[in-house]
């Protein structure tokens, strides 16, 4: 166990949501890596079958099976930290249904027969609430799973769920409400209630991934309001992704750069045609200043939500394994994990 405090020490199920295009899967993967330190075991679950996790970790498509996908680096400065393990699981409704039947009823062949009859189409088409329960059910099962002999007593010290996008997250997580319309009593209802007991407890937090642009910020604030409206559900952190660092102080950004001075400096740096270049770079600088100003405005809006905010830099070269580790280190430095 780590001696270091983090913002989410009591949380074992980290649900990660975000508007499409904000890098939700990347942040979920980086968070899983960051949580995998001090010998901890972390399970990273993909809920929407796009195989984004396999691609991020440069692996072939993941089957419906928990398998080790990466080793957490631990604290780089602390030689005693052995790091931890990240396991990954890609959930699809069909696999989750078979798993559910097997685990709770010991019915594997009946499950296969039901699948052939179109039971999965039934769950996903006629009653999407049911398929959500199966997916969240698997995530909460992994969270609750005991393992005698492990330090915490649990099979996984943390589970990170790469969840559906922000627009759908409230409905996705509020399974008991979704299902109660369909099933007032019976096995599905009691399964949904078990799931809800984990999701609506302090051991679950819903994190939001966002970029500093208007629409993602608005959706994040709406999503936070949705989660807060459900008693027992806990909003986690706001992860600002693809943040571009401000290269100059506020003051320098506000003052329009002096063209002659810029030209002189570029000349001093040995650049060709410094006059034209100065004009071009000054225009770029002006654009940058405007972008920083807009980003600051969006950041202020996010701050008003009153949740911890973490910032992850834009990695212009694209996300590979090295970049994931870099983002994970950022998350640890900012005490998100």
């Amino acid at each position: 166990m780590t001696a270091r405090d983090t913002d989410w020490d009591g949380v074992r199920l980290h649900v990660v949501t975000g508007k499409g295009g904000t890098g939700k899967t990347t942040v979920a993967a980086a968070l899983a890596l960051a949580l995998a330190h001090s010998g901890r075991r972390v399970l990273l679950i993909e809920a929407e079958g796009r195989q984004g996790i396999a691609r991020l970790f440069d692996r072939p498509p993941l089957p419906y099976e928990e398998r080790k996908i990466a080793i957490g680096p631990g604290e780089a400065s602390d030689g005693r930290d052995p790091g931890g393990d990240v396991y990954a699981l890609a959930i699809d409704p069909e696999g989750a249904l078979l798993d559910y039947l097997h685990m709770f009823y010991g019915m594997r062949s009946a499950g296969v027969a039901l699948t052939r009859l179109g039971m999965v189409d039934f769950a996903t088409t006629i009653a999407p609430g049911l398929s959500d329960v199966l997916v969240t059910g698997k995530a909460t099962e992994a969270t609750r799973r005991r393992q005698p002999g492990s330090a915490s007593g649990f099979a996984y010290d943390a589970v990170v769920l790469d969840a559906p996008p922000t627009g759908r997250i409230g409905r996705f997580l509020n399974v008991s409400a979704e299902v109660s319309g369909l099933a007032k009593v019976g096995p599905i209802r009691s399964h949904a209630d078990t799931v809800a007991n984990v999701i609506k407890s302090p051991q679950t937090a819903v994190h939001f991934v966002c970029t500093l642009e208007e629409m993602p910020v608005q959706e994040t604030l709406d999503g936070i309001a949705d989660i807060r409206a459900v008693p027992g559900m806990q909003v986690g952190g706001i992860f600002i992704n693809m943040a571009r660092p401000a290269l100059l102080s506020q003051q320098d950004l506000k003052a329009p750069p002096d063209l002659a001075a810029m030209s002189e400096a570029l000349h001093a740096a040995g650049l060709h045609d410094p006059g034209s270049l100065a004009a071009a770079l000054t225009a770029e600088l002006g654009e940058h200043a405007r972008r920083v100003e807009l980003a600051d405005r969006e950041r202020t809006e996010l701050e008003a939500a009153g949740q911890p905010i973490y910032e992850l830099p834009l990695i212009a070269e694209g996300i590979d394994l090295a970049a994931l580790h870099r983002l994970a280190a950022e998350l640890r430095d900012q005490e998100a994990a």
């Binding site: 002096d258 810029m262 002189e264 940058h288 212009a316």
Partner: peptide, 30 residues
């Protein structure tokens, strides 16, 4: 002092430009 602060601004503009070129290069590749 003024020269130095002009250099800082110009250096920032150059770094910004490099970032743009890199991002553009990546988008072009993709």
């Amino acid at each position: 002092n003024t020269v130095s602060s002009n250099y800082v601004v110009a250096a920032a503009a150059l770094r910004l430009h490099a970032e743009r070129m890199n991002l553009g290069e990546r988008e072009r590749r993709v």
